[in-house]
Design a protein around this nucleic acid. Structure first.
Length: 127
DNA sequence: CGTGTGACCGGCG
DNA sequence: ACGCCGGCCACAC
């Protein structure tokens, strides 16, 4: 998947600027799709993985458009750095979806978050 | 092309 | 420990 290549695409990669379809949102979506079932990650972790070119806020904002993404993005597996379902208000099905993944949630907070946490920067490696 | 905005994060009082 | 404040940057209007 060359996700990491996006970060260091100098000229070898196809300029996404030409095709608006592949905006940085796609980068975020791809990472989110890599999240294993039963695991979660944070907006900050994703922004950290993609690089300084994006901020955590952008990730969250990208998720806002994730609902319109074609291959469905498991946005429910993305929470804030505290393991709180900050998106639940805008994504009501979130908790239910997490439940199907055997992820325990209490008071909008993921139980044993640090254990279920999936850091793309570590799991996906840097090659 | 300027301004506002956002599913965030980390620091500080 | 908790709440507020500023910074972060792409995208919509």
């Amino acid at each position: 998947m060359a996700i990491k290549n996006n970060k260091s695409n100098k000229s070898t990669e196809q300029p996404r600027s030409l095709t608006k379809q592949y905006s940085f949102f796609e980068d975020v979506y791809e990472v989110v799709r890599q999240i294993p079932k039963g695991r979660v990650t944070s907006y900050g972790a994703i922004s950290n993985y993609l690089g300084t070119k994006v901020s955590a806020r952008m990730v969250g904002w990208a998720m806002n458009a994730a609902g319109s993404a074609k291959p469905k993005v498991p946005a429910h597996r993305v929470v804030n750095s505290k393991g709180i379902l900050s998106a639940k208000a805008l994504f009501p099905s979130m908790e239910g979806l997490l439940a199907k993944e055997k992820i325990k949630v209490e008071n909008d907070k993921i139980i044993d978050f640090k254990n279920l946490f999936w850091d793309p920067a570590k799991e996906l490696s840097i090659d």
